[in-house]
């Protein structure tokens, strides 16, 4: 065997080794990349399932004012006998609102979901329909209903409204008014029995689009907003003189549409907290009167809850959406999850 044959064989073997090592180092990259993306998807689905189908621990942690945070996190509504899927507990959801005195921080939730510092997330709650209220006169309102996806007007939406007000320190309400949106998504509602002068008034509007329900409120006059947590009204400051009763505003479905009404409840006061004797399940708000102004306590659903406040978009995030029901209203819950490092 001549020397050039050895040299030629050595060169071939060298090239084989170089080609092999290059291929071996580049081969796992696509599968690794796919695996990481799949891992993010699976993690997102698991988080979503935990959020919307698990009640958390204890199951009533949202309305338990003694608890700063639950032992396990979940937003599903707890029922003693049956439990609906995709129905969220409004008391748990409003714990995600920074305006709530018992706010649970995103970092606490991330730790409860065992995400640590590996993942970041954003939860967005969007009402299934966009409803805009515009007061055009003392007792006249324009209502516009549009799609939350493309802002197109929605026709044939049933609108039911009622005004609850204080006049001469007395609680009263108007008759129920109804309308149907036209092709431009608009309709008007007028109350003939609303006094010209009121101390405070709360307009309650329920829109129903073939079963999709949205409730909106509009307030005018001397009104202070308060949080409604379970059967507790939590005010910002301790009131001096409070009306002896509170009025729970109910919305419920009847054979012909929706009924908007109120029931009177008694309560006990402890500092800035009023504890109602009984909270109606279908109550959407509670109104009382203290120190010359009305107190409107409602369960607020936050629009956005994120481990990175203010960030509107995050690269390489995985997003899932689900239709959920909160306090009888249709919402779209959007969960966006991303890895903090790749």
């Amino acid at each position: 065997m001549h020397i050039y044959e050895y040299l030629f064989t050595a060169i071939i073997i060298f090239f084989i080794l170089v080609a092999s090592s290059t291929m071996i180092s580049s081969m796992p990259q696509p599968s690794l990349s796919v695996s990481e993306k799949e891992q993010l998807k699976v993690a997102t689905q698991k988080i979503l399932t935990q959020l919307i189908l698990n009640t958390g621990d204890p199951p009533d942690w949202g309305s338990n004012t003694a608890l700063d945070a639950p032992a396990a996190f979940g937003l599903a509504k707890h029922g003693e006998t049956t439990r609906d899927a995709f129905v969220l507990d409004p008391d748990k959801v409003q714990r995600l609102s920074s305006a709530n005195p018992l706010y649970v921080t995103p970092q606490t939730v991330a730790n409860l979901l065992n995400l640590g510092n590996d993942y970041g997330f954003t939860i967005e709650f969007r009402q299934a329909l966009t409803v805009e209220l515009e007061q055009t006169g003392t007792a006249d309102y324009n209502i516009q209903v549009t799609s939350d996806q493309n802002s197109l007007p929605i026709a044939n939406v049933n609108v039911t409204a009622k005004a609850f007000y204080y006049a001469n320190n007395q609680f009263a309400c108007t008759g129920q008014a109804s309308a149907v949106t036209s092709i431009d998504g608009r309709c008007s509602i007028s109350f003939t029995d609303l006094p010209q002068q009121t101390q405070a008034q709360v307009l309650l509007v329920t829109v129903d689009y073939y079963g999709t329900r949205i409730v909106k409120t509009a307030v005018t006059g001397q009104i202070e907003q308060a949080a409604l947590i379970g059967n507790h009204i939590v005010m910002n400051t301790q009131p001096n003189q409070v009306e002896s009763t509170a009025h729970q505003v109910l919305v419920y479905k009847t054979a012909t549409g929706y009924a908007l009404t109120s029931v009177t409840s008694s309560f006990t006061q402890d500092s800035n907290m009023l504890s109602l004797d009984y909270a109606e399940p279908s109550a959407v708000a509670t109104i009382t009167f203290a120190d010359g102004k009305a107190i409107l306590a409602a369960k607020t659903v936050p629009q956005r809850y994120s481990t990175i406040p203010g960030a509107t978009s995050v690269p390489f995030a995985y997003t899932v959406e689900r239709s959920v029901t909160i306090n009888g209203e249709a919402y779209t819950l959007q969960l966006r999850v991303w890895r903090m490092s790749w």
Binding site: A85, Y210, G211, T212, R213, R322, S323, T325, A330
Partner: peptide
């Protein structure tokens, strides 16, 4: 399944 659930639960 989420959308079907919404359709049947809301009397659509």
């Amino acid at each position: 399944y989420n959308v079907l659930h919404r359709i049947v639960e809301s009397d659509t």
